[in-house]
């Protein structure tokens, strides 16, 4: 007699509805699943492509009724390059959502500071979307976003929209090209433009490791409590559910104990 177990390793089928290049090697995939998934900002899915493998990808959208999920994928390794070859109408296989989400409740009644770098804006995008939806219960939202060059800025339309809807959007680039007269340098040089009360704010940070480290250090220095400095970490994973051991870092599994961590946890468990 064969008893069927719910198999956590078998992904479900989704169809690529839209493939939109945001920069030369970053592409937004909007997929439609066969059943509704409920997920929260900060969580991730294991995204599979047969023959290539599986990678963890954060959700870049808010959970909605239309069974749609958006993934922002940068062409970096074998699997992501193969995913980039897919066309609209092709299948992408996913399982999840996994991991802890951003503790958005911290934002209620406070200023929200969102710090992003490069493709790190993708997991923060649903946080911003949520912020706009819940504008009345939070004080002010500031977004500090840095990219390498103006061409590397992702979600340009969203940035525009957010700015129009009252979010304080501050952009900066490392290497400006022609026609850029905005900020130049790292995001950590722009704290004065955040225009928030650091002591009573919550920050959500995502980006390259160096940027996260620098941002945390500064924010802590400005008096932001360490449990309200929140970031999300990246790691190599094979399972997403705390079994394969690849993402074990410091003393935590990034997949099940994270990927969202507060600075308090990062310090306690040597995660960075």
């Amino acid at each position: 007699m064969t008893k069927t177990y719910r198999n956590i390793y078998i992904p479900e089928r989704t169809e690529i509805k839209e493939k939109l290049y945001l920069t030369g090697d970053v592409c937004l995939f909007r997929v439609e699943s066969e059943r509704p998934f409920e997920y929260n900002p900060g969580q991730f899915f294991m995204v599979s492509l047969w023959g290539a493998g599986e990678v963890p990808i954060s959700v870049a959208s808010l959970s909605n009724k239309r069974r749609e999920i958006e993934f922002c994928i940068r062409r970096a390794g074998k699997v992501t390059s193969a995913i980039h070859e897919l066309q609209e109408g092709n299948f992408l296989w996913i399982r999840g959502p996994y991991g802890k989400a951003f503790p958005l409740e911290y934002a209620i009644g406070r200023d929200v500071l969102i710090v992003g770098g490069g493709i790190g804006l993708a997991p923060l995008r649903p946080v911003l979307q949520w912020g706009l939806q819940n504008k009345n219960s939070i004080k002010k939202i500031s977004l500090l976003y840095g990219a390498r060059t103006p061409e590397d800025i992702i979600f340009k339309e969203d940035l525009q929209e957010w700015a129009e809807k009252g979010i304080n959007v501050v952009l900066t680039v490392d290497r400006p090209g022609d026609g850029w007269d905005g900020n130049i340098g790292l995001v950590t040089t722009l704290w004065h433009k955040a225009e928030i009360d650091f002591k009573d704010a919550v920050s959500f940070i995502c980006g390259p490791e160096v940027m996260i480290k620098a941002a945390i250090k500064d924010l802590f220095f400005f008096g932001m409590p360490e449990e309200r400095i929140i970031t999300t970490l990246e790691a190599h994973m094979k399972c997403g559910v705390g079994k394969c051991g690849h993402c074990y870092n410091g003393e935590k599994y990034i997949c099940t104990d994270g990927p969202v961590f507060t600075y308090k946890e990062i310090k306690e468990f040597n995660l960075l």
Partner: peptide, 24 residues
């Protein structure tokens, strides 16, 4: 020790997703 890695083996008649012991 429980770590494993996962790999896809692409045969002409299907794809085998295999897990193998791995080492940290």
């Amino acid at each position: 020790c429980t770590c494993f890695t996962v790999t896809d083996r692409v045969y002409s008649f299907g794809i085998d997703r295999v897990r193998l012991w791995d080492t940290c």
